[in-house]
């Protein structure tokens, strides 16, 4: 995304219905500002986010992904967020090995009331990815 001539990282935030999505909603209600380049995908639980979903987004050129789930111990489905943590850890390894960079993927845990934390985490990943530069797949041959 290019706004006013400056490159802005394109970020997807996979948000759990029971916490992060509500936190993002609350952030909106409170008129809290966070980078507009973040696109939220509403997920029933972070445990439902498959490794393929994340890998496909990177292959299609997304610059960074935030997986936002409930606080540990607070998952509506008991351990979906714990599973998501293990999966994101594994994908981070793969991203490092193939040269995309594991730092582009981050998982955070928060509750529905933690709108300021959500905003802060979003800003953090945007800054981290901005420092890394665009997804290297965009520069390569055949990139979408």
């Amino acid at each position: 995304m290019i706004e006013s001539g400056q490159w802005e990282p394109k970020i997807i935030a996979f948000c759990c219905n029971y916490c992060a999505y509500a936190a993002a909603d609350l952030a909106g209600s409170k008129r809290m500002q966070y980078p507009a380049s973040v696109r939220i995908i509403h997920s029933p639980c972070t445990g439902k986010i498959e490794m393929e979903h994340i890998l496909e987004a990177f292959e299609k050129g997304i610059d960074g992904i935030l997986v936002a789930g409930c606080l540990e111990g607070g998952c509506h489905f008991l351990e979906g967020n714990l599973r998501a943590r293990k999966r994101t850890d594994r994908i981070r390894e793969i991203l490092d090995q193939i040269g995309v960079g594991g730092e582009r993927l981050k998982m955070v845990n928060l509750s529905a009331a933690m709108a300021p934390t959500f905003v802060e985490r979003v800003r953090e990943i945007v800054e981290a990815v901005r420092a890394l530069g665009p997804n290297p797949l965009k520069k390569s041959v055949g990139a979408p």
Partner: peptide, 21 residues
């Protein structure tokens, strides 16, 4: 099928980055 899919994503991306799709 699933593991083949995940490995495929990884290999396609790795090769694209190297400029050898």
């Amino acid at each position: 099928e699933r593991e083949v899919g995940i490995a495929s994503y990884a290999m396609r991306m790795a090769r694209k980055i190297e400029g050898q799709p």
